[in-house]
């Protein structure tokens, strides 16, 4: 006799599931970055568009290449994380970068940044920033040559030697311009805050509009796909630290708003530092991570040799994450104050 005529399925509880999965989160992060990407294309024209497409394609291709023979439905490229890594990497690059270099960066981001650690969820460092750091090491000059922003009128003007062939010397000409941080650091010249806020400055693709990045981040935080404590902690620390320095010596140090709105800080704080894989899971750990990051960013910018320090600050704090998590475990419900409770351990 068949005791199960209805073919009832056995599984374990719970039988309900929140209708949110990893690919959906990745998709939403990508959607929230769409305005930032469009702004980059507005300011930097076809070069930006090509750079974004190259990085996304390069990252997805690298992911597929190094995954081995897996049925398509189980391929990790379908989870959307590689595409997101590519988009974020593109947003950290200068608009005139030759495309072949972007491809090298994509490969490094996925392989060195993620695959060698064991894939999604296992990596210690943010993959996009790993890719960028790799490029910065390999090609320091193209990575610090910035184009001035334009409008839609010169959409088809290339912002650099985009189609340079590998291993040739790319040319950088009259279009290059200094970033606000470089101007501040090396020429002691300020930039209007409104330009910084709306993005009409030279820099990486995603270093332009603070406003759009904040809106994207707010959307993600509202969906609870983003740990709001990290950007909040970074902003508070940087503003406080920079303001103290500014008050001590207004001649030398710019004020807090300038630090918040310039360079890769917005993109870094909202989209890179909050990468859940490489940031602490505990609330207290998130605050520690964020404040450490903020102090490092201002220190590098003000006292280091580089104009910009967001990337290295995030990578450094990524390395500290396991340690931070370990020492900030949440207090468990009913955890005992063992002083008054003799002989009650459960071990």
């Amino acid at each position: 006799m068949n005791s199960n005529p209805h073919n009832l399925v056995l599984s374990t509880s719970p039988f309900l599931k929140r209708p949110v999965d990893t690919p959906l989160i990745m998709r939403h992060v990508i959607y929230s970055l769409a305005p930032v990407a469009l702004a980059a294309i507005w300011f930097f024209g076809v070069s930006a568009l090509l750079l974004i497409l190259t990085c996304i394609g390069g990252c997805m291709a690298s992911e597929m290449l190094f995954e081995g023979k897996v049925p398509f439905r189980q391929r990790t490229v379908t989870d959307g994380s590689a595409a997101l890594t590519g988009l974020l990497l593109a947003l950290t690059l200068p608009p005139g970068l030759p495309l072949w270099m972007a491809l090298v960066g994509s490969l490094a981001a996925i392989v060195v940044g993620k695959i060698i650690f064991g894939g999604l969820g296992q990596n210690v460092f943010n993959p996009s920033l790993t890719g960028r750091a790799f490029l910065q090491g390999c090609f320091p000059v193209p990575l610090t040559t910035w184009a001035a922003p334009g409008g839609l009128t010169d959409f088809f003007t290339l912002r650099g030697d985009t189609f340079a062939l590998p291993f040739t010397n790319p040319e950088f000409d009259a279009l290059s311009a200094a970033t606000p941080l470089a101007k501040m650091k090396f020429d002691a010249a300020g930039t209007p805050l409104a330009d910084l806020f709306f993005g009409n400055v030279s820099g990486s693709l995603g270093e332009t509009s603070a406003l759009l990045i904040l809106l994207g981040g707010a959307y993600l935080a509202w969906c609870r796909f983003l740990n709001w404590r990290i950007p909040a902690g970074i902003f508070i620390t940087i503003f406080a630290f920079a303001t103290i320095l500014h008050l001590a010596n207004p001649e030398r140090f710019p004020d807090g708003f300038f630090h918040l709105l310039s360079g890769g800080l917005m993109l870094g704080a909202v989209y890179m530092a909050t990468d859940p894989v490489t940031s602490p899971v505990t609330p207290r750990g998130s605050w520690i991570f964020a404040s450490g990051l903020g102090i490092l960013v201002v220190s590098i910018r003000e006292f280091g040799g580089l104009a910009e320090g967001v990337m290295y600050s995030i990578l450094f704090m990524n390395a500290c994450t396991p340690l931070i998590d370990r020492f900030t475990q949440p207090r468990t419900y009913g955890e005992l104050n063992t002083e008054n409770e003799p002989g009650e351990s459960r071990g």
Partner: peptide, 12 residues
Amino acid sequence: REYPCIRCSACL
């Protein structure tokens, strides 16, 4: 389909 943990802290 089970994906790797991305430490999103939703469970915490």
